[in-house]
Amino acid sequence: MSTIDTPSRQRIEYPESDGKPMGETDVHRREIAQIIEMLTLHFQAEAKVYVSGNLMFYYEKGNPGAVISPDVFVVKGVENMLRRTYKLWEEKRAPCAVFEISSRATRLEDKGNKRALYAMLGVQEYFLFDPLAEYLKPPLQGFRLLGEEYAPIDQDADGALISQELGLRLWSEGSCLRLADSASGQALLRPAELEAARQRAEQEIERLRAEIERLKHGSEQ
């Protein structure tokens, strides 16, 4: 649990959890985890890009009630390191992008209070994704901060969105949110795809080793 000492020596606690269980479907939990994983791997070489999600985000010093826990968020200009909580007055950087995976329980807050709060905090881009396509039409929506208000990000003909802050192209594919580098077009692989690619690479290495041994044995004969 994170704390600070005030001049009056009152100890203010900033809990690392709200004590509430995550009441989401397997699909929602999977998407949150996999988006965090994809973004973390994509920005792993960037020392000043921090990716997190479901972390207690405190935005008002001295007020533990001023807290939100974005499903996924990215901050540019802060150290890429593990944190227990995120305190805006210490980091001095608001997220450049926030993703909320919308559900029955969160859809009204995602489009209302959270949207207004993120705009007030200066979050430049805000994305909503409904993996079950039950509540949002279209299921993927993006907003960019213009002044003090969000304006919708225009969709491509296929419904994809461009994140200027992240340099990524986003589109929905069934219950999955797909991401790709907007400059190169290279898709960010999901964890299962990364594992499959690793296995294919290992199989190819073994095939090459066997071929080398075969050629070596043939030359010796």
Rank of each mutant, 00 (worst) to 15 (best):
Y150N: 09
L161N: 01
T106H: 06
P152R: 07
A133I: 09
G62D: 04
F57S: 01
A94R: 03
E31T: 03
G65S: 10
E79V: 13
E134R: 13
S2I: 14
G167C: 14
P15G: 05
P139V: 00
A187C: 13
S52A: 15
R83Y: 08
P15Y: 01
S102W: 03
Q10L: 08
F143E: 01
C176E: 13
R200L: 14
T25N: 01
L128C: 04
P191W: 12
R214S: 12
Q164C: 13
E31S: 04
E37N: 09
D18S: 06
A197Q: 13
E79L: 13
P95V: 11
P139H: 02
R107Q: 14
M81N: 14
P95G: 14
L215H: 09
T3G: 06
E211I: 07
F57T: 01
H28C: 02
R198Q: 13
S182Y: 09
R93G: 10
I212Q: 11
L128R: 07
P64E: 01
I12S: 00
A33I: 01
R169W: 07
I205A: 15
I162Y: 09
S172Y: 06
M22P: 00
R190Y: 14
L132Q: 06
A119I: 08
A197V: 10
E213M: 11
V74T: 02
K92E: 15
L215G: 10
L179E: 00
A197Y: 02
V67Q: 08
T3I: 05
L136E: 04
A160D: 07
K216D: 15
S219A: 15
L136P: 00
E60P: 02
T85G: 09
G159Q: 09
S172K: 12
A183L: 15
A201W: 13
L128V: 05
R11L: 12
E148Y: 03
K92R: 15
E90M: 13
K87Y: 08
P139D: 00
S182H: 12
K114N: 08
F57R: 00
N54P: 03
Y118M: 10
P70H: 03
S175K: 14
A47C: 05
L55D: 04
E134L: 14
L41M: 00
P131R: 01
R200H: 08
R178D: 04
L108Q: 13
L128K: 03
A160M: 07
E91N: 12
W171L: 10
F73R: 00
A157Q: 09
R11Q: 10
M81R: 15
G77S: 08
E125H: 02
M81T: 14
Y150E: 09
L39D: 00
L88F: 13
V72Y: 02
D154M: 14
S17F: 04
S184H: 11
G122Q: 07
A201Y: 13
P139W: 00
R11E: 04
G53C: 05
P21C: 02
N63H: 07
